[in-house]
Amino acid sequence: MKRATHVLDAVLDVLAEQGIGALSVRTVAAAAGVSPAQVQYYYRTKNDLVRAGFEYAGEQFLAEIEAAQPKSIAGVVELWLPLDEPRSRRARVWLAYAAAAVVDPVLQKENAKLDRELRQWYVDAGLTEDVAAQLFAMIDGATLQCLSLPLAERRALVDRTVGAFLAKLAVPGSM
């Protein structure tokens, strides 16, 4: 599929700042400073915008991991959790996508596939399947809780939940 990164950046802006309910060809066009026709040239429907935006956000996250080269599972977890504004923005995009996936069968299937791939990454990094699933669920829950707290309070929550869980596993580099 054709890509227009300026349009995808606008999709992420709308999702992060206004949520999935505000996402439309018109709001994305306004955020990108282009005509609705230009947005529709690349992405015909709202679901196309959501899918492309989430894929783009995932690519950005993977690039961030590659650039940071974390040396531990805890390092990867740290990059995901919304402990600063850029990660909070990404987490709000993820939350909008996850909410859409609950009611859209196509997105639901894509989301389930992505979840399996992420859990497998933790298994490949040395965790059992059960522990990988627990960690994945804990990251999701901690992300939601963090987003409801002021930035200054998030580190304490992460340390006493995810950090404590990783420490019990004796995972090197626990938070």
Rank of each mutant, 00 (worst) to 15 (best):
A52E: 10
D159L: 11
E78M: 07
W121I: 06
R116L: 07
L151F: 08
G173S: 07
E78F: 14
V39K: 10
R160N: 09
V93C: 04
K113H: 10
V77A: 05
E153C: 02
T5E: 14
I65V: 15
F136S: 13
A30M: 10
D84F: 01
I139R: 03
L127Y: 10
T143A: 04
L127T: 14
L114S: 14
F54S: 02
L135Q: 02
P86N: 07
Y97K: 00
A133S: 14
L83R: 04
Q18N: 10
K71F: 00
V11R: 01
P82I: 01
P82Y: 01
L149D: 01
Y42P: 08
R89C: 00
G58N: 14
G173P: 01
A132N: 05
A10M: 04
Y42A: 08
Q40I: 04
A16Q: 11
A74S: 15
M1T: 15
E110G: 06
K168Y: 09
C146D: 00
A152H: 04
W80Q: 14
V171G: 04
D48K: 01
L8Q: 11
R160K: 12
L81P: 00
V14F: 07
A67N: 11
T161F: 03
E78W: 12
Y56N: 03
I65K: 10
V162K: 02
M1S: 13
L127Q: 09
L81I: 03
L107P: 02
A74Q: 05
A167D: 10
V14G: 00
K46R: 15
D13V: 13
G75K: 03
L15V: 07
A63K: 12
S148N: 07
D124T: 15
L23K: 03
P150R: 10
G58C: 12
A167T: 12
L15R: 04
A63S: 14
A91F: 02
